[in-house]
Design a protein around this nucleic acid. Sequence first.
RNA 1: CCAGAGGUAGCUCAAUGGUAGAGCAGGAGACUGUAAAUCUCUUGGUUAGGGGUUCAAGUCCCUUCCUCUGGA
Length: 365
Amino acid sequence: MKTLSLPTFFPDATYASIHSLPFHDVAEKLEGIVVTTLHMQLIGITELLLKINNEGSNLDINYRSLANLRDDMVILSDSGGFQVLSLIHKHKLGKVTEEGAIFKLPDSPKKKHLLTPELSQDIQHAIGSDIRVVLDVPLMGNEDRKTTTEAMERTTRWAARAKEQYNKHTANNKGEVVSTPHSLSFSRPLLCAVVQGGNDPELRKESGAQLSAIGFDLYGFGGWPLDEKGFFNTKIAEAFVNSLPAGSITYGMGVGTPDDIAISHKIGMTIFDCVIPTRNARHGSLFVTKGNGEKAGETFDLVRIGAQRYETDLSPIDKDCDCPVCKNYTRAYLRFLQKKKNPVGYTLASLHNVWWYMNFVKSLR
RNA sequence: CCAGAGGUAGCUCAAUGGUAGAGCAGGAGACUGUAAAUCUCUUGGUUAGGGGUUCAAGUCCCUUCCUCUGGA
């Protein structure tokens, strides 16, 4: 039985590790991580696991034991659906058919990677993740109604196929799921559907209805969470939550800034993941407690550590943060490492941001 | 001392005698189910000093200074 206190935030470990940040550095704070199926498939970690287990005659090594992750830490595997948006729709590196998503990547131009809803489940099962996501067709939100409707309805069909495959994997894995607004306990892998419908509240409502009619353990807020101006799309987020039966467990996929998480939680979402704390750390944006940095949002300030004003600043990044970076290093040193593009700087910055995010989300409970 | 090659932005270097530029560094932004350790924007110049030729000189000529490479 695993239990998550809600709300919770999972840093993204897309390529089987949190970018620039060893798991053990944040182990005590980590409640879960998000790995991505497509990249897992492409770098062949499922093949590696198979090889290790075959050579060792049923060692039963899975991703968790290989990466030495705590038993109670939740592994959420993404389906590869977001890459349909970022690679296929945005960068035209493939196409989507009814069968699945076909990725044609520059590193292997002659090879087509077909990711079906079933294969995505197979990979997620091989990884041994605790929360699995159905392959979906996300859009940016500015497409016409016809395109949005088709993507939404295909997402529903794919979700049904994914559930069928998931059932094959977990047929004998009976277990209970207990959820309240403040906690989620489960003793079997969970399956998450993804609500689409773009920026159209009616289509969001329809998507939620179609998916909940099939029945899933939890539901993701799919698509692109921002509006045309780059602000968090609160109206559509509300349409998403309202499209589901009361008490549904909701997952804000790729949400977001601390402000976005706070508002999403207020609306009713409880599970979050985002690349912001790690990516922005590498790019020099460090999250700090309100009042301890440059004014940025309603719930947080920023220290853009590369800025000249921190060149000789001997104070910690955030005097109210209890992370190892704030307890041991100065802004001046962090700035120096950042400006020199020193990988250790990226690691320390990521450690701070992830730690700070975990504290922030905990403060919403 | 002699010969050759040089001296242009903080650095490395471009620029037929015709509006002095780039990369990096420096500065400022952005980042939302990771196509990245990324992207965008941007400040810097008496072209080593002085003189000359020319409508016009970083560019040609003279001179001084400095650097590098050979030679004695």
